[in-house]
Amino acid sequence: MSALDTTATALSVIVVSADSGPSLRDCVNSVLACTVPLELVLIDNASSDGVPQAIARAHESDHRLKIIYNRANLGFGPAVNRAAEQSRGQALLILNPDCVLKEPALQRLLEVLATEPKVGLVGAVVCDGKGVPDPASYRRDPVLQRALATLFKSGDEGVNIDGAMPDHLVEAEAVSGAVMLISRRVFEWLNGFDENYFLHCEDLDLCRRIRDGGWRVLLAGDVRVLHGKGSSSRHRPVFVSYHKHRGMWRWFRKFDPAAQRPLVAATVWLGLWAHFLLQIPGQLIRMASR
């Protein structure tokens, strides 16, 4: 199938918001500016900033936009799963609310999904406003040995892959959850995201289960997507940090062989939560200084 043919792909773009702020408008506008046939499902986790409602009013005549309002913050993975259930696309693009998507990037991701054999998920290189790639765009499973190598900056193989970010299509163990294109067939076979994660590490979990199922995880290194800093993380750093550490612990228990050794597991548990507690004073000081 050619790149031109992929424009006929039935696509659902899923965006989860939770007090995501003005960047959500830019995200929605960028998606709706694309000419690729798509629907945009914006699922809101009980935001209080009024932005989703403002977006609904601004685009009330655009039938491609569907907004789902949750009465509570369900977490990222559970919200995506519910949006997927109410979507129609045969391909699902999971997009962070602080990402700006351009049509050539979308076309390229769809092309890869349509043409590569045994592809389960396609990611992109997410960049900050200066065009600097996020190392999390191209990474390995965060097994204990790699996590320690990254933490202590040793010469061993770490979680993030060293060197320049690829500028071509490569196979990866994991990609950034900010931009992930997956076929509905694969997503449903996996029963979507593991809902025992609330925020963080559910993308690593999904990538791992895709590979365990016999599909490939690919990074389209020639696709760059602008990714800002999440408003939720800035406003609720302790809340976000707690769920990040909780997610790391769940991934470790599910997939790392080291978790089968009780002493190692206990040490990791203590280390994770000690790290969480030590971060709190600095997070509160930075939040108060804004």
Rank of each mutant, 00 (worst) to 15 (best):
T6Y: 00
A8V: 03
V16L: 12
S17H: 01
S17M: 05
A18N: 13
S20C: 05
P22K: 04
R25D: 07
V28P: 01
V28H: 01
V28S: 03
L32P: 13
P37Y: 07
P37G: 07
D44A: 05
S48I: 10
V51D: 05
Q53Y: 02
A54G: 12
A56M: 08
A56E: 15
D62F: 13
H63V: 14
L65W: 04
L65K: 03
A72F: 14
A72D: 05
L74A: 10
R82N: 12
R82G: 08
S87P: 12
L93M: 07
I94L: 15
P97N: 06
V100C: 01
Q107D: 15
A114Q: 08
P117A: 08
A124I: 03
D128R: 09
D128L: 05
P135Y: 07
A136Q: 12
S137R: 03
P142F: 13
Q145N: 09
R146P: 11
T150G: 09
L151F: 10
L151N: 15
K153Y: 11
S154D: 04
G155H: 06
E157Y: 03
I161E: 00
A164D: 08
D167Q: 15
V170I: 11
V175S: 11
G177E: 01
M180K: 14
L181R: 02
E188N: 11
L190H: 08
E195A: 07
D205I: 05
I210D: 13
I210G: 12
I210F: 07
R211Q: 15
G214A: 04
G214D: 09
W215V: 00
R216A: 13
V217I: 03
L218I: 10
V223P: 00
V225T: 03
H227W: 07
G230K: 04
S231V: 05
R234V: 11
F239G: 03
S241A: 10
Y242E: 09
Y242P: 12
R246H: 13
M248D: 13
W249A: 14
W251G: 01
D256Y: 02
P257K: 06
Q260Y: 10
L272H: 08
W273E: 02
Q283P: 00
A288L: 13
